[in-house]
């Protein structure tokens, strides 16, 4: 006590010596985030604005005609090819995110409720696939799903099929399988965190009030871990819509997604404004889809009570 009391005047003297600006906590906070913030502004906000601007211009062979036009959006929204690609991308990302969350939930549940002292070890094991590059992981799925791949040889050895099937690779399913695997860890972590926050006494209370294992899961654990499941869904859904590498490598003709079309416009087709319009369109659609998903899940959770 005495020491603290003696220390105090010194402290305030030192604080008074600092510029007043740095004393406010808000100012300190802003100072702390400003490098990242400025970097994000330069690398994220500015490119988005550039893309947005481009989407209202026209490609005129080698130059860009900067008169305002909605023609790019007309093409993006009405041309069957882009509309189909967008729908397929949404379908794939929605499927991938739901499948990923449904598969990740039991793993997160197991680690949180039965991991015991080894929770840290389990989480560490889950990150092991990330020790190799994303590209290598996608390529290895090619090895598994391919014509002479592990899956086909295995099924043939078991006598389930007589000749290699081409149904596994170069289609939508291949993209879904590969993306689900790639994003699993990102889904497990937020679900795990929200399950960790569920007060175990609440589960005992539900038991005390007559609930068996299934009912108390549905009535207490699931609703309370919903925020984690929703963030997992978003974490997977939003980036997978725009995934480019996976459909390119394992998607074949049927697995092409909107990002591949956008890449084509910025690359070979050399029509930046149309590419930009496709980008903006998919951004808007993804936002709408994510919002709708959150809304629907929250509504469903309320109804379930």
């Amino acid at each position: 006590m005495t020491i603290a009391a003696e220390g105090k005047p010194d402290d305030s003297a030192q604080q008074a010596g600092r510029p007043a600006l740095l004393q406010s906590e808000a100012a300190q906070g802003i100072a702390l985030i400003s490098p990242t913030f400025l970097y994000a502004l330069a690398m994220l906000a500015v490119p988005i604005l550039v893309t947005f601007a481009h989407s209202f211009w026209t490609q005129n062979y080698m130059d860009i005609d900067r008169t305002f036009t909605l023609e790019n959006y007309r093409i993006a929204l009405t041309e069957p090819i882009y509309r189909d690609l967008l729908w397929r991308s949404l379908f794939i990302s929605l499927t991938v995110s739901f499948v990923t969350v449904v598969l990740a939930y039991p793993i997160a549940y197991y680690i949180s409720f039965h991991g015991g002292r080894h929770k840290g070890l389990w989480l560490f094991i889950i990150t092991i696939p990330f020790w190799t590059s994303y590209l290598l992981r996608v390529m290895s799925w090619k090895v598994i799903l391919g014509f002479n791949g592990v899956l086909n040889s295995g099924l043939m050895a078991l006598g389930i099929i007589s000749e290699p099937s081409t149904a596994f690779l170069y289609n939508t399913n291949a993209v879904i399988i590969t993306l689900t695997h790639a994003w699993a860890a990102f889904a497990i972590l937020p679900i795990f965190v929200s399950l960790e926050k569920v007060d175990r006494t609440l589960i005992e209370a539900a038991t005390d009030l007559g609930d068996g294992a299934v009912r108390r899961f549905l009535r207490v654990t699931l609703p309370l871990s919903m925020p984690g499941a929703i963030s997992a869904l978003m974490i997977v859904m939003i980036p997978t819509v725009g995934d480019y590498v996976t459909p390119r490598l394992v998607g074949g003709k049927d697995g092409v997604m909107i990002a591949n079309a956008i890449q084509a416009q910025f690359g070979k087709a050399a029509n930046w404004p149309l590419g930009a319009a496709l980008s903006v369109t998919s951004m808007v659609v993804v936002t709408a889809m994510a919002g709708a998903t959150v809304f629907i899940l929250r509504w469903a959770a309320r109804q379930a009570r």
Binding site: D199, T201, L202, E204, A205, A206, V220, P223, L224, R305
Partner: peptide, 10 residues
């Protein structure tokens, strides 16, 4: 319960 265990979502 000692902590009362009131369901926070209800």
């Amino acid at each position: 319960f000692q902590s009362y265990a009131i369901f926070p979502h209800l």
